[in-house]
Design a protein around this nucleic acid. Structure first.
Lengths: 135, 135
DNA sequence: CTGGATCCCGCAAGATACTG
DNA sequence: CAGTATCTTGCGGGATCCAG
């Protein structure tokens, strides 16, 4: 509510006030779960049917697919379109809002691609050091 | 979104292969939890002591602070420096790698700031529609 | 002050079976 | 095909006490 951004990266206040609204935490709560991002990116490529998502996203249960889609629809990131046909057909499409989210998600993806090896290395180094301690 | 992005945003392959390494999922697994981002951002501003973090981050338990810090150190995002003094003093600092992560996180933060109201509105609209259904 | 070790609980989420 | 309903479990994470 005070000066709404311009270039200041992140302020301490913004992030530690858990009751009010910490923006990063807020979006992470929406998207930080196990499946939301997968679905968003799938839909970022094209509209998908329920069953397509179920088959494409390895390991997801019907229950979680439904729940996650519902949450995304509720937040205005995804639009649900039910065709009254038989057999029934339901399409899920990324909204404009959803598409805008794709960009920062992509930034995160690029970071991950660039640094995954660094992390893997750091982890291995760390674990090896620990192993030595224990003899 | 219609501009100089020569990179393909995200590929379906990258995201659906859960066994191998889906980059976004990988970083989300590291950072998508309740506290990691808060800590990273705190440390992004300056080095903090354990107790400082404990007091600054509202609601975190000692246990979770310790566990989260351990994980971040292991991944090479945070560096732990124990001073052999009495009383003991331990400083936590963001590493170079940790700082690079701050950028995509900031992108996410900006998105959140710009669109939190959209989400709130969408949610309210959605909930109101549901209420009407139930009479 | 900086943690480690335990105990414990709630809820996220998987499996399964059923329905319009 | 696109969900819903129910049952069950794992484990994330809080509280508390102990230790160097």
């Amino acid at each position: 509510m005070s000066e709404t951004n311009t270039r200041v990266p992140l302020t301490e206040r913004d992030l530690t006030d858990t009751t009010e609204g910490c923006p990063v935490r807020e979006v992470l709560d929406r998207v930080g779960d196990k499946w939301s991002v997968l679905i968003i990116v799938m839909l970022g490529q094209r509209t998908h049917r329920y069953g397509e998502l179920a088959r494409a996203i390895d390991g997801i249960s019907q229950r979680m697919l439904t729940l996650t889609l519902r949450a995304l629809v509720r937040d205005g990131l995804v639009e649900r379109t039910a065709h009254a046909s038989v057999p029934p057909r339901v399409d899920y499409t990324l909204t404009e809002l959803g598409h805008t989210l794709l960009e920062p998600l992509t930034a995160l993806d690029h970071w991950a691609n660039e640094h995954r090896e660094d992390i893997r290395a750091a982890r291995e180094r760390h674990d090896r050091a620990k192993d030595q301690q224990h003899g």
